[in-house]
Design a protein around this nucleic acid. Structure first.
Length: 257
DNA sequence: ATGGTAGCTGGGCTA
């Protein structure tokens, strides 16, 4: 099973890129973030023609997530579109069980700036996520939580750790929240297969970050221990970041037996 | 250095 995640930063703008990437990579599952469209505009028919079933949870202008699943793979009925019990108008969560694997697509809040209201929202959101995932973990041995986490797990995931120290995406409280989530029994799948630094999934549009590989690894694929046991490889496909009019994120991929 | 770019929208917010 090949599972991937891509923050597309507007599905309308990136539509043809997503189609081309799907045809090239043929993942079993592709989860998207920041589709930035209302539900009625989601191009379900285009994906059906490419052989993918789709689930989506959109909103106007911001956020929005989707899951694409190859035809033939069974999607169970337990689809969840929000963190249970957490009041939130922002569409950042989509969960479904695909072929017996619990898939959780996340667009974690950015947080804007340490100490800001949006930072507190990010921490509150992540605390609610923690509670919910703990319950999900009790129901599902096979789980993959993936998406834009907006947290660089360690300094090895940051091009300039000194400049980013304590800043948003790298602060202690954010990293501790991620560690706590991992302690439920998940591993950072990319790091199981890659130990070198300098490998990133996001590069700021500003100041030519991609050309200089000044990025952060903030798009993650967390595998439950049962899935880690069958993980074969994980990598970041930096090619689409170099395409014309790219998303600021690259797709991340994990392969399982 | 508090900019720089991109997307949505139609001025300002978010990232």
């Amino acid at each position: 099973m090949k599972i991937a995640s891509w923050n597309v930063n507007s599905l309308r703008v990136r539509q043809s890129q997503v189609e081309n990437w799907l045809l090239d990579q043929r993942p079993d599952v592709l989860v998207l973030q920041e589709i930035k469209m209302t539900d009625d505009l989601f191009p379900e028919d285009i994906y059906a023609e490419l052989g993918y079933q789709a689930l989506w949870s959109g909103q106007k202008t911001y956020n929005g997530v989707a899951i694409l699943v190859q035809d033939g793979l069974m999607i169970d009925s337990d689809v969840i579109k929000a963190i249970p019990g957490f009041e939130d108008p922002q569409q950042r969560v989509l969960a479904a069980t695909v072929d017996g694997v619990r898939i959780v697509d996340l667009y974690v809040p950015n947080g804007s700036e340490v100490g800001s209201e949006k930072y507190q929202y990010k921490l509150d959101w992540f605390a609610a996520l923690q509670e919910w995932i703990a319950e999900e973990r009790n129901r599902h041995e096979k789980m993959v939580i993936l998406g834009d986490f907006n947290i660089a797990p360690a300094d090895a995931d940051v091009h300039n750790p000194k400049r980013w120290q304590g800043k948003i995406l790298c602060s202690d409280l954010e990293r501790q929240a991620l560690e706590k989530l991992l302690s439920l029994g998940f591993v950072d799948t990319f790091r199981k297969f890659n130990t070198e630094g300098g490998q990133y999934s996001w590069w700021d549009y500003r100041s030519g970050g991609f050309a200089r590989n000044q990025g952060l690894r903030i798009d993650l694929i967390l595998s439950s221990l049962a899935m880690e046991g069958v993980a074969q490889d994980s990598w970041i496909d930096t090619e689409p970041r170099g395409w014309e009019q790219p998303s600021d994120h690259a797709p991340v991929i994990a392969e399982y037996l």
